[in-house]
Design a protein around this nucleic acid. Sequence first.
DNA 1: CGAAGGATTGATCACGATCAATCGCGGTGG
DNA 2: CCACCGCGATTGATCGTGATCAATCCTTCG
Lengths: 246, 246
Amino acid sequence: MERPDPTIVTVPRACPHDRPGSLCADCKVRSVSVCAALDESELAGLAALATGADYSAKAELFPQGAAARHVFNVTEGTVRTYRVLPDGRRQILGFLLPGDFIGLALTPTYAFGAEAVSAVKACRFERPAFEALVAAKPHLLRRLHEAASHELSLAQDHMVLLGRRTAEEKLAAFLLGLRDRLVRLGGSRVTLPLAMTRQDIADHLGLTIETVSRTFTKFVRDRVLLIVPDGVRLLDAARLETMLAA
Amino acid sequence: MERPDPTIVTVPRACPHDRPGSLCADCKVRSVSVCAALDESELAGLAALATGADYSAKAELFPQGAAARHVFNVTEGTVRTYRVLPDGRRQILGFLLPGDFIGLALTPTYAFGAEAVSAVKACRFERPAFEALVAAKPHLLRRLHEAASHELSLAQDHMVLLGRRTAEEKLAAFLLGLRDRLVRLGGSRVTLPLAMTRQDIADHLGLTIETVSRTFTKFVRDRVLLIVPDGVRLLDAARLETMLAA
DNA sequence: CGAAGGATTGATCACGATCAATCGCGGTGG
DNA sequence: CCACCGCGATTGATCGTGATCAATCCTTCG
């Protein structure tokens, strides 16, 4: 699958954005999101609640601990979710790509902050209306639960990574995991756009920016990858896989 | 399957363990578990599905990746959940105490392994029957979702700990977190029984056994706690709190 | 009493952190 | 147009936390 510009994951129009009259039924990320659980009539209900929200790079979707007034479905761009300690240390919990849902937990406040890494477009739903829909549609709740369970499993994976992996293994796991997600969204298998900074990657993997940079350099020296503008090109993904098997 | 593991004893009975004929309505840990969501009639349905399962220390409840045939509600003792890497490195995801539920995810296989740390008693439900009950009771599903959301939040806390905390902070957070859970179960505020080994604690906090031991020793030297048989006595919990605030 | 398993302590090592300088690129204004 | 600026990334030098290697110690249990 060819992509003209590897730096941008172009996901065709989603939910009702800046195109008046467009519906969730046309949403190009629907198949990979919680919305996949809904039938036509339910989608209609959802579409009525949806508004488009655009964020420029570095914009805050919401801060940690804020009242949870919305749930979101990312349709374009990359979002980082994070928690910070009082002294400023930051842990990035994850990077959200098109199709990813924010607000699965249905808690009164957000347990983490969220910021746009690149320019982001999202489908946004008011919480009260969304909750009402969930209450009316057990199947949607079931789907939310499955999504939350999946996220819990990913969180557990990440605990293993943070607690028991070396710097090299961490970066290898990060790159392969991101590649797989991008492939599912129709991206290239060898060229990964990296919207996030080295600092973001470091804060996700429990490393410093210098260690991330040095590890990238080592991978380049070992002919495992090339660094290209705004991303990397994988030369030897098998070698990365091997690091994880070990 | 015909010759059951001698470390596991199954007894046909309702939720609470050693009292034949007793019902979930009497369950000591109900108020702190997902069962708290159920009314009398629902409890009756649940009680009909429950069997007691006892495990001696170190017994395996199920291995990582096994088909998820049961869900569990721990009623006595401590369980560790874990994932292991191919080369043997282990990450303990959490320690489950009475009232904690195993199998929230409702996935076809267990995403992690579970072992009894101490002698354990649990309420055990067959998955098909439990799933049927969940399908029939949206309120129970909602409760499961809330529990899963809470667990996700705890997992995110732990990611921060693993990625961004020092050894001292990790141990302080572990002790205070465990204390709070034990207090909610009616335990002491200053004397913590530690059913798990130093190695278990190390594998939970992303440290080595030696570092855990040395950090305990440092806490003793600093008059923060005393080491007592099978546990610790907190002398200066405030100092532990301070470490986390920093 | 001896063996075994968990815990502690000591000596040394090394991975990744820290401190610091420089690079490279894109944007901006003179 | 290009000099300058700012920010992210890279690289180098050194440090230090926590890992590793290894030797007891302590408790329980047969």
